[in-house]
């Protein structure tokens, strides 16, 4: 049965689709190394026409891997998983479509709301992130998303659908050179 994923038609008008991977959530969750393999492969695939392809691929792989790891850790085994990279000028958009439980959905909404609120206040997001580094416990979902905002100036959006959710992250990495 082909996977069912929800993609934002409006976004596709603005952004040019570069590459997309769809698979059953069960398959994606069957092996942790999928995160590494998919992020490395996709980052390299879309890197060749960027000014410094190795730098771009390394940074995009790093950001994408964190997002895939977040998705992997949702622990929801049903439904389908979709990962796409689209592009508009210097911005690469990562869209992750997946299924998750209600509590996880609320957690994502809370994290994204917090980021969007912090973005209004200069420095608040970075202060949050620095503070999280010194905590005893490992990185939570909110910290991982905060790091993308702080390190890559990412913009994050979270959409919900009937049977899935979508994490949309815009990364302005395309114009980077050393």
């Amino acid at each position: 049965m082909p996977p069912k994923t929800a993609h934002n038609n409006l976004a596709e008008l603005d952004f040019r689709m570069m590459v997309q991977i769809d698979m059953e959530m069960t398959t994606f969750n069957s092996n942790w190394t999928h995160c590494d393999y998919i992020s490395t492969y996709l980052a390299r695939t879309v890197s060749h026409n960027r000014p410094d392809s190795v730098l771009f691929a390394n940074l995009l792989s790093s950001a994408l891997n964190e997002l895939l790891e977040i998705t992997f850790r949702t622990r929801h085994s049903g439904g389908t998983f979709g990962c796409s990279v689209s592009r508009r000028n210097h911005v690469d958009r990562i869209e992750l479509t997946f299924t998750c439980g209600e509590d996880e959905r609320r957690s994502f909404e809370h994290a994204v709301t917090r980021i969007q609120a912090g973005a209004v206040e200069a420095g608040a997001v970075e202060a949050d992130y620095i503070s999280s580094l010194s905590r005893e416990v490992g990185p939570g979902r909110d910290m991982l998303l905060l790091e993308l905002v702080v390190s890559y100036k990412a913009q994050v959006r979270f959409d919900t659908y009937d049977d899935s959710v979508k994490l949309v992250v815009d990364l302005p990495l395309g114009g980077l050179t050393h």
């Binding site: 792989s61 790093s62 580094l133 010194s134 005893e136 490992g138 790091e147």
Partner: peptide, 17 residues
């Protein structure tokens, strides 16, 4: 070090701190 996820980064740097 080309890549390090946040799980590893937090563990190594927390030890350093």
């Amino acid at each position: 070090l080309s890549q390090m996820n946040n799980t590893a980064f937090h563990a190594f740097t927390h030890l350093l701190v």
